[in-house]
Amino acid sequence: MSDDNPHSSRGSAGKTWLERIASIFSAEPQDISDLEDIISEAASRELIDSDTKSMLQGVLDVSKMRARDIMVPRSQMATIDIEQPVSAFLPILLENNHSRYPVVNEDKDHVEGILLVKDLLQFALDPNQTDWHIKDFLRPAVIIPESKRVDALLKEFRQKRYHMAIVVDEYGGVSGLVTIEDILEQIVGEIEDEHDDEEDNDIKKMASRVFQVSALTPLDEFNESFNTQFDEEDADTIGGIVLHAFGHMPERGESIQLGDLTFKVSKANSRRLLQLQVIRAKESALTEDVGS
């Protein structure tokens, strides 16, 4: 009789589903790999969509991460020296477009505090106010070890309402920093804001020989546009080719020449290249209209 019931298989599957969830959460200790299997099965049954699956997987991944795994490394930290006048550090603010910056004394191992850009607005609006020093606006810097669990750090960010932490190694030297956005990006993916460059087009022509190129541009598309012959067996994207050529994760502003093209990193985070500036050594009729 049950075989003739069109709802019987669905009911059985639903029961199995609930039983599996119950068994996992009642087991001691709980096995994350079992949870990952449940999430994958839910996606395959279309109980959740791919975005939800990615976020759930991101939550599980965060539970296994330490601060060292997601921090912006020391070499890529944008900092302000406590003795710098406004004229010296203003270009840093404009170039990076962050909302807060570590303020250091002489070097990055001596962090004096955190500067919130919004605290300077009153002086930007009133140029007659000159009797002030950057140290008057410093907020306390939160210091955490590299081994700090990321999920615990996110909880502290929320409870204590701060958004940045300085990461130190076992000897007390600064090794990087972590923001609440860095953690959220592990869960929901890259977060773009109004300051991020538009990336709707993979290739944009900026000047006669200068192009803005997404690092995720498929290599075959890049080869066709620039009349290059990078081996598609070496990488799927132009970013992969550039990263391989550097031999390390480059910082913003680093450049390398490949053939008659110079690649300059214009946007990157601690994990991947995002945007490249490509400069041709000379004009080529074959690529005159690239990115137009």
Rank of each mutant, 00 (worst) to 15 (best):
S8K: 15
S9D: 12
L18P: 01
I21C: 14
S23Q: 14
I24G: 06
A27N: 15
D37P: 01
I38H: 12
D51A: 13
Q57K: 09
R66Y: 09
I70R: 00
I80V: 14
I82L: 09
I82N: 06
P85N: 15
P85D: 14
H98T: 02
S99L: 01
Y101M: 01
L116K: 08
L116T: 05
D119P: 12
D119C: 07
L121H: 14
P127S: 08
T130Y: 11
I134P: 04
F137P: 01
F137Q: 03
F137T: 04
I143Q: 07
V150K: 03
K160C: 13
R161C: 11
R161M: 12
Y162K: 13
I166C: 05
V167M: 10
T179A: 02
V188N: 12
E190A: 08
D193S: 07
D196A: 06
D196M: 05
E199M: 05
N201P: 04
N201V: 12
K204Y: 00
K205I: 09
A215C: 02
F222K: 04
N223V: 02
F226T: 03
F226W: 03
E232I: 07
D236W: 03
I238W: 06
V242F: 04
E254F: 14
G259L: 09
K264Y: 13
K267N: 10
I279K: 10
E283G: 09
G291K: 05
S292Y: 12
